[in-house]
Design a protein around this nucleic acid. Structure first.
Lengths: 340, 340
DNA sequence: GACAATCACCCAAACGTTTGGGCCAAACGT
DNA sequence: ACGTTTGGCCCAAACGTTTGGGTGATTGTC
């Protein structure tokens, strides 16, 4: 039954109306169980709570932050929010943040270092308590600077250096795809490896290559190419791979969008995906299953990754010692690798 | 040459170090061109600026907000950030916000009214200056409440009531698709219309239906069905349409994801998209062009929509009178409607 | 050389909280 | 009956800004 007072209600208004001191009201409303009974009589506590509720009192977060030197804000940097992978991770972050009374600022860096620096500064200027980076470079150079400034942070999606991170077990995911393709008899395969600075692409392709090596098959250099992470990037990279005399019988693209681009390129070359050539992706984006030729891919728990990322940061902010987490991937076999 | 002071630097620190009063420093750093010379001598101004720069002074936004009663924060509500359409709109919002020194809180409501209310409360509790809704229900019931609370806001993507909004000209877009299909000779067509509460789906399908009516063709009720906006929703809706004895020769799905679902359903029915059945979408999502059968769709300027939305809100916050904007769509003809 | 006008600043009160200390009265212990 | 504890509350000082209103020295005007 919270009435709508047009002008915002403050502690002082409550205090005046109750004939109490503002500090008393403050203590009552904080209600740390160990303090609440020391603050006022239970009758008073009741009165205060009731009025606060009726008037719809909301503490002014700026005043609180100013006083406590804690903003309950966290900054989140991602390469692009229009990438569904990062968007989904962010949804997890935001959900977990809401549950803890934290709010998030999220912003794009387009994976360009200059923007990362810029946006970090902006976010820090807003006095966030900590940060979550979804756009870490594997060399961790910039993160070193951030760490030196004493800013608490964690990484999601990509790992870097020894900083705490929550990632998918990308190496294992890469191996899973390799073992799947091996079991289908593919011996001449290629990799669309993503950007060279992202641990995701690196680990996924390394896992893939290692698994093939374990099976006694060395993947030659000309079967390996970097790419942007989007559909067009995958398309272009696959063009390069298919320009060879003998096309490979299977392609592993390190994310679904690159894989969709790869499918497009295969089509352009008159190859039927699933029959003439096998293509696998990574992430199990919702679209993967809906594509005209459903895509074999590795499911990575993106939402969960976001949640865990925020929880890791929360623990860090509480002064706890934290360590990185690697979430389990799961292979989703579909038609794009179905052909004999 | 901004040195890193580990402890945050305040106005007082600057003032003390310069032998000035904190208010003088404040005025200098505000530097409204009409006030800066009234604040201090140009020599002093120089000294102040230099030290502020050296020490890397950043005003504490909480203190500023507390004092000025303005937070330079705006709240953004979207159905789902993992929907690339909304994510892209938000990127536009965030970009424009950054340019104006505003920051944004964005949060998902999953299009459920209870969450809209909840999240609005949370965002308002953070004392945002205004809000942008990307999840408006066409009935505008909830928005009425928000307006009554005196919160300045604008709408993006969807319109509702007479509240200021920035949308694509969805009605026109719908007509464009209809005219395209008519020109290809399609006379028996169906519509996957999206959610009944979203103006986007309503306007797009109304435009489409009106254009057919203008051509003397009445689209019967069993050729029209609502759907969720995602691939699975489009798939299910198309299943319903294709369960009829005579399938239509073309389907207009009011967004690209629903269209992708429609493509999947068509495939399941043994129909070749572009040859046996034409399918068109809406939004021109980056994927549309990369699909195995590239998708005919209507390009809507999503990024720009976000930018304009923020600018509209900014003007509103400046007390200006604002009015809604409708951005021009553009038809992208591709293979999915190429067949004879 | 008297007067006002400017210049270059300083003062102090807010904005809404939080929090370490008080202080007074009633209850308690012996 | 007299000190001590406790319950129940109040005081006041911060946190870092902004901003309307000074004030004393210099400059300009005649």
């Amino acid at each position: 039954m919270s009435a709508e007072r047009s002008s915002t209600v403050t502690l002082r208004m409550l205090a005046d109306q109750l004939g109490l001191h503002v500090s008393t009201v403050s203590r009552v409303l904080h209600a740390k169980p160990d303090e609440s009974h020391r603050a006022a009589s239970s009758a008073t506590v009741e009165r205060v709570r009731k009025l606060a509720d009726e008037l719809g009192y909301r503490p002014n977060p700026h005043a609180t932050s100013l006083r406590t030197q804690r903003s309950n804000l966290v900054g989140v940097l991602v390469p692009r929010l229009s990438d569904i992978v990062l968007a989904t991770i962010y949804e997890g972050i935001e959900e977990a943040a809401g549950e803890r009374g934290l709010s998030t600022f999220v912003t794009n860096t387009s994976d360009v270092p200059e923007f990362q620096r810029d946006r970090t500064d902006m976010v820090l200027a807003r006095r966030v308590d900590g940060m979550i980076f979804g756009d870490a470079y594997v060399d961790a150079a910039f993160l070193g600077e951030v760490a030196e400034r004493g800013v608490p942070f964690v990484l999601v999606s990509r790992r870097a250096g020894d900083y705490p991170s929550v990632t998918c077990d990308d190496y294992l995911g890469g191996r899973m795809v390799a073992e799947h393709l091996l079991s289908l008899g593919h011996r001449d395969v290629a990799v669309v490896a993503g950007e060279p600075y992202a641990s995701t692409g690196i680990d996924r392709s390394t896992g893939f290559i290692d698994a093939y090596a374990d099976a006694g098959i060395e993947i030659p250099a000309h079967r390996f190419t970097h790419s942007r992470f989007d559909a067009r990037g995958g398309h272009e990279a696959t063009e390069r791979l298919l320009a060879e005399d003998e096309p490979p019988s299977a392609i592993f693209a390190v994310n679904d969008f690159a894989a969709i681009g790869a499918v497009g390129a295969a089509r352009d070359h008159g190859l039927s995906v699933g029959a003439d050539i096998a293509i696998a992706g990574f992430n199990d984006t919702p679209l993967a299953a809906e594509l005209p030729v459903p895509l074999t891919t590795v499911h990575s728990p993106m939402h969960e990754m976001g949640r865990r990322g925020l929880e890791l940061l929360a623990r860090l902010l509480h002064g706890e010692q934290v360590s990185s987490e690697r979430l389990r991937p799961e292979l989703m076999v579909r038609a794009s690798t179905a052909g004999s």
